[in-house]
Structures are given as structure tokens and as C-alpha cells.
Design a binder for these strands. Structure first.
Lengths: 205, 205
DNA sequence: ACTCGGTTTAACCATTTGGTTAAACACAAA
DNA sequence: TTTGTGTTTAACCAAATGGTTAAACCGAGT
């Protein structure tokens, strides 16, 4: 062993976790380097020793989280599943991701609005999600008379909206429904089914 | 006339408009009083002469915008319209509101996450949206065999999600679809119909 | 002519904040 | 023992920022 003299987690890891928490809760402007240092259990000097600047640190965190935001849309859409199966898989996996990263949406969307070009590049690279493929799939099923026509983009936007929005508006949803944190989680678990049903009911003939 | 010696708009109005713009674009933490003063065409001294502090000014703006966020849900839901008509009216009016206030969602949701209790009180007062009424409406139509059962909260969350989310993720949507600003607006105009159809197709039997 | 409130100018202040520095320390590997 | 690296301490810095102050200005109503 070279590193890790005393602490279980490496210091770098502790910093990254602390930074992630603080940035997610307060945003880059609201976050304070001191808070991050405190939460990581170290001092500011060491924080800057590891990550030269706030920007750099934020960059790291954002890169790490950006990939989670638009999940394996492409891989799911390119798979051999039927459209119905793809919808089910997409919604299920996405809501699961969000249950494990509840603050991800507001974090990412803020950065997208602050800095669209860079943020989008970091999320998608240069590869746009394959909506054409969705359109093709839909066209086939429409011809077979199994579903009503709908634009791929509309279908995708609707699905993503229904998955993400409840997490963005979580405090509101919990207040309106008087739900505890556990109940909110249950609600989202349920939505893995209800959203799929909602979508399928809508497009099926 | 007592006021308005030289300027067309009253100074207070100019400040409020400038502050609204800056706060909406940058958030309370990212906003600079100097920017607001500049955008209003005045100086910092006068800005503080009108609004004592950044907090106070933000408060004003937030109060003004908060009401727009959750529109006349109650009044629409309480009206004499059928469920189908209510859905159509709700989606149509809401998307119209958002077209005129595109940054409203991210602005409000950020404050809700920063400061849930106060923000929610300012948005809703103490009156929770009447989901029971929605449930009642649904129950009736289910008994009449006109629609499939669905929880009121799920229906509402889905509708609101599909209305708001595209505005939250606007840069992403425009990048994916290669849409200009005008095309985005058109897309949203179209969604006034497609979202309604999507919802109705889903719940109708 | 005088007053009064909106307005500007410009200096000023205190605090926060990101970031730096230097010295001392601890500990593991060589 | 020496060396190197991670770590702390603590002082320090410069810039940004919210906010204040005082003096002068200006123009409309009295």
C-alpha cells in the first residue's frame, strides 16, 4: 500500500463525495469551498491541494453525474426489444436511477441552463439520441395497426418528463400528498408501473 | 402627475423588470445587484433606495412569479366543465402561461428546493390543490365506464410534468431536435394538442 | 424663491470568499 | 535515518460583493 495511511476512504474520495453533496444541494454559486472541506472532514488548504479551484472541482462532479442523467437511452433504443418492452425498461431503469440520485435532475438542469453548450456536450458528447430509430419503430407498429401514430420526440419527451419531473418538484409533491420521504419513494416505485401503463394505454390501439 | 418626470416607465417598474430578468437567468446566488442596477439603467445607490436588500427584492419578484406557477388549477378543477374539458383547458392555458414565462419553472423549482417550506407557502398559501375533487370526477367516469381507473394525483402529476418539463430542459430539447427558438415555440404550441390527446387516449376506454 | 423627493456620483465599509503560503508535523517507504 | 508525500495550522491576500453615506444635482409643485 502506498496511499491511505489512516483513513478508510481515500481523501480524494471523501472530497468528491462532500463536493457532490454540497454542489447538488446548493448549486455552484451557493456552494462554499469551506462547507465542502468541513463536510469532507479536512481543511481548505488540503482541499485546494487536491483540486486547484472550485471550477475544477465542480467540473469533476458534473462530469461524473452528467452520464447518469441521460441513461442508456441509446443502448435501450438500439436493443432487440419490442417498443413496449423498451418503454417499460426505460421507465423502470430511469426511475431507479433517480431514486438513487434524487437531486440529479435539478443539478443537471441548472447547469444546462447556466451553460447550455458545454453542459450538453458533457452529457451527450456529440451524439444526439436516436429519435429516428424511435420514429421507425413507431411507424412499423402503426402500419401493423398496433398503435396510434405519435411523433418519436413527443413520446420520448412525455416519458422523460413523467420520470424526472416528480423529483424536481419533490417538496411540492410531498406537501400536496402529505407524503413522508418513505411514502414518496413508494410513490415513485409505483410510478415505474403506472407511468408505463399510462404511456402504453395512450399509444396502444 | 406627481411621479415620472422624465422616464416613460416608473423607476420602480424598471427595477422590478430588470431584477426579474437577472434573478430568472442567474438565480438568487448568481445574481448581482450591480447587474440589476445596470440592466435597469440606474445605479446601485438608487437600487438600494428602492429595495433595501437583495433578499427583499428577490422576495418581491418571487411573490410576483409564484402565483403564475400553479395556475388556476383550483378554479379549473372546481368549474362545471367535464373532466375531458378540464384537462384540455388546463394543458392549454398552462402551456400558454409557460410560453410567456419560459424561465418560470427553473426559477420556482430552484427556490422550492432551496427553501421548500416558505416557497410552497408563497405558491399555495395553505390551500392544497383539490386532488380529492379530481378523484371524485374520475370515480364517476369510471363507474359510467368512460375511462380507466387512475389516481388523481398520478393524472395531475403526469399532466403537469408534460407541460413543464420541456421548458426546464429547453436547451436539451432544442439541441436534440435541432430546433430554433421559433421552432421550439411551435413545438410547444403543438403540444397543447398532443399532450391533451396523449392524456385522453390514455385514460379513455 | 424655496422645498422636496428622486437621482447621481463617488467614495467608503465590512464581510465573504476563493485561493495562497510557509512552517511544522506524521508517517511510510527507501 | 532520510526522504517524500499527505496533512494541519494559521496567517494572509486580493477580489467581489452587498450595503451605506454624504454631498451635490435637478426638476416639478408650492
Amino acid at each position: 500500500m502506498i496511499k491511505e495511511r489512516k483513513n478508510d476512504k481515500s481523501t480524494e474520495q471523501k472530497i468528491l463525495e462532500a463536493a457532490k453533496q454540497v454542489f447538488m444541494e446548493k448549486g455552484i454559486d451557493g456552494a462554499r469551498m469551506q462547507d465542502i472541506a468541513d463536510k469532507a472532514g479536512i481543511n481548505k488548504a488540503l482541499l485546494h491541494y487536491y483540486f486547484r479551484s472550485k471550477e475544477k472541482l465542480f467540473e469533476m462532479i458534473f462530469m461524473e453525474e452528467a452520464r447518469k442523467f441521460m441513461p442508456k437511452v441509446t443502448s435501450i433504443m438500439m436493443s432487440e426489444l419490442t417498443l413496449f418492452e423498451k418503454i417499460e425498461k426505460f421507465v423502470g431503469e430511469y426511475i431507479d436511477t433517480l431514486l438513487q440520485n434524487p437531486l440529479l435532475p435539478i443539478f443537471i438542469l441548472n447547469e444546462i441552463n447556466r451553460n447550455p453548450k458545454d453542459a450538453i456536450k458533457k452529457i451527450f458528447g456529440n451524439q444526439r439520441p436516436p429519435i429516428d430509430k424511435v420514429d421507425e419503430l413507431i411507424t412499423k407498429l402503426v402500419k401493423k395497426g398496433e398503435i396510434k401514430p405519435i411523433k418519436g420526440i413527443e413520446l420520448m419527451v412525455n416519458m422523460v418528463s413523467m420520470c424526472i419531473f416528480p423529483f424536481l418538484a419533490r417538496p411540492m409533491v410531498q406537501w400536496i400528498t402529505k407524503a413522508t420521504d418513505e411514502e414518496f419513494v413508494k410513490l415513485m416505485e409505483m410510478r415505474k408501473k403506472t407511468v408505463v401503463k399510462f404511456v402504453l394505454d395512450s399509444i396502444k390501439k
